[in-house]
Design a binder for these strands. Structure first.
Length: 602
DNA sequence: ATAGGGTTAG
């Protein structure tokens, strides 16, 4: 049963001359483990003498299958309940975000253990109610200390305090609400860290853009004697993905193989994600194929990977295979599908998916799906339809919605619509510098230099700045940072010599950089500088990347960048195959075939 | 058998 041989187990079960509740329970638990829910239920219903174990098994079965109502009915009809039953019911409410009901169950429980406390704690954390979580967290340690002190004395007290779970919940809670300082405080304060704590804090740093700190913590962790396991591998790989640190990611991959986690789902997913974000789509697919039990996340990661690389059709093929494999797509899958269609120009097919996703897969379009659709219609020049969608959508349009409309206006040179959309974005996100640049480019493309000047003034008034671009390239596991006209890098002599040479090669290959949208109103001198800067960035990314691999330098020919993304080029971080990876102040963007797949507009 | 963390889009 444990190895997934349900049929074999059933044959044994049927052949048994005598069956007690243990045999039934084993069979039921096996069915549940192998996701054969209805078979489990069937057997449970026919069971002559159910013991507490069987009831609990079935209850957790309902809870795991998100059938809260059924779970409640079963729970209420149980002849007797123990702490496991109560906790299972509690976790049902927690998983589905019913905080009040969770609280009610918690209060009614005749006996609570640490699982109950942590369950309620994570209910608060998941719904963003950190204050309440904090209060509960603090009262929990009091409660434990007092009761365990009274009951059993010092040994157990130490044990309970050493339990890192509730600390970990709080740490990840603060990380998710971007309060990394508070998270770090708890991390430093906690009496005993485990691998989960490390994974949480590292992921926290990475998710909030503190990549260096995340890497430092990874080193700290090893120094602390914590070895890499499933959780920390995941954090490490996801950090590598975020900073496009391919070399390091490959090394971690090596470690993963050594420890035998390679074909596991979670680590496998992280690996696929890392290779996708670092531009190695083929390697990503290899790992993907090797994952033994693919879950929704595995499929979603691969799907989004193809979409991001501009391989829209492959992305859709992955989606269809996912359906064929019997995996139910979720909201994220549909975001992937729609963005794949959008970036590949499959307008009609995307529209079909959008309209049938509810009927086919029971997924109601959320605001992200609407934004994808607006983007899809907008790129295809169907601005009228895009506007209608904004008007009729069942959500208040947010900054992303207006951003998509602004992007579409920019592509199709519709100033009136662009101004309208921009006005809304500026109201909602006055410091989103990309949007100012986008509108400014829209003016520039129509030769309205006065308005371009006004934009610049406005940016200064509001206090937004385009963050200076810098490249961040990895050579032999060392991360090098470059800025414009860098004069600090120890290898600068060699690099600049190489740049000159590359510059020549680029010209020989026929690369002409477009001046159309490069800082419109700047004086000629500055313009030249910017252009030089631009090619410098490309060259550094290109050059450094090719040196360690020893691969020949393939210059510019297949590098096409749409005008919208032109500004972004200043931040180029690396170029891999057909993929260009660009860094702004917060994260990395991926471009291919001149299309930015991230949905952020420049 | 029940909790926590780590993986996916934007």
């Amino acid at each position: 049963m444990r190895n997934g041989h349900c049929d074999l187990a059933l044959r044994v079960f049927d052949a048994m001359p005598l069956r007690n509740s243990v045999s039934y329970n084993a069979m039921i638990s096996g069915y549940l483990r192998n996701a054969k829910f209805s078979l489990a239920r069937h057997l449970f219903d026919r069971m002559p003498h159910k013991d507490l174990f069987s009831w609990n098994l079935m209850l957790t079965g309902f809870v795991r299958n998100r059938r809260l109502r059924d779970a409640r009915v079963l729970f209420d009809s149980m002849p007797e309940k123990d702490v496991v039953s109560w906790n299972a019911m509690l976790s049902g409410y927690v998983r589905s975000g019913h905080v009040e009901e969770a609280r009610e169950v918690f209060d009614k429980m005749p006996l609570k253990n640490s699982i109950s406390w942590n369950g309620l704690l994570s209910a608060y954390v998941q719904s963003g109610r950190l204050e309440e979580a904090r209060r509960l967290f603090e009262s929990k340690s009091d409660w434990e200390l007092i009761s365990w002190n009274c009951l059993m004395g010092g040994y157990v007290k130490r044990n309970m305090l050493g339990d890192a779970s509730s600390w970990n919940i709080m740490i990840s809670g603060y990380c998710q609400s971007s309060d990394i300082t508070q998270a770090r405080n708890l991390f430093d304060m906690m009496p005993q860290r485990d691998s989960v704590s490390w994974a949480a804090i590292i992921a926290g740093y990475a998710q909030n853009g503190h990549y260096e700190e995340a890497m430092n913590m990874l080193v700290e962790m090893k120094r602390d004697g914590e070895s890499l396991n499933r959780s920390t591998f995941c954090s490490a790989l996801s950090t590598c993905a975020d900073i496009a640190a391919l070399e390091l990611g490959k090394q971690v991959h090596g470690q993963v193989v050594k420890t035998g986690y390679e074909n596991g789902c979670l680590v496998g997913n992280a690996l696929v994600g890392m290779y996708c974000k670092c531009g190695c789509i083929d390697e990503a697919y290899d790992v993907f194929e090797g994952i033994q039990h693919k879950d929704v996340v595995s499929w979603n990661t691969m799907l989004a990977g193809y979409a991001r690389h501009g391989f829209g059709r492959q992305a859709l093929t992955v989606f269809e295979s996912m359906i064929a494999a019997g995996v139910k797509p979720d909201e994220i899958s549909m975001v992937g599908v729609l963005s794949a269609c959008s970036h590949t120009g499959l307008t009609d097919r995307g529209t079909e998916y959008f309209h049938s996703m509810n009927k086919d897969y029971g997924i109601t379009p959320n605001s992200k799906h609407y934004t994808c659709m607006i983007d899809l219609l907008g790129r295809a020049g169907r601005l009228e339809e895009a506007q209608n969608l904004v008007r009729n959508m069942p959500f208040e349009p947010d900054a992303a919605t207006w951003g998509a409309l602004l992007g579409a206006s920019r592509i199709h040179g519709n100033i009136e619509l662009g101004e309208k959309a921009a006005e809304m974005v500026f109201k909602m996100e006055p410091h989103n510098s990309g949007m100012y640049v986008l509108l400014s480019n829209l003016y520039a493309a129509s030769g309205r230099w006065v308005d371009v000047g006004k934009m610049r003034l406005k940016m200064r008034e509001v206090g937004v700045e385009k963050t200076p671009g810098y490249s961040w390239v990895e050579v032999h596991n060392k991360i090098h940072t470059f800025t414009v006209g860098d004069c600090f890098h120890p290898e600068k002599g060699r690099i600049y010599a190489f740049l000159e040479e590359l510059d020549l090669k680029m010209k020989r290959e026929g690369y002409v950089s477009s001046t159309k949208l490069v800082l419109h109103d700047v004086v000629e001198e500055e313009k030249k500088h910017m252009l030089k800067y631009h090619s410098e960035k490309l060259a550094v990314a290109f050059g450094i990347l090719t040196i360690p691999d020893g691969r020949p330098i393939r210059v510019m020919k297949n590098l096409r960048v749409c005008e919208d993304c032109h500004n972004a080029i200043k931040h180029i971080s690396r170029i891999v195959g057909r993929l260009i990876i660009v860094r702004d102040s917060h994260r990395f963007h991926h471009f291919s075939d001149g299309i930015c797949s991230c949905g952020d507009y420049w």
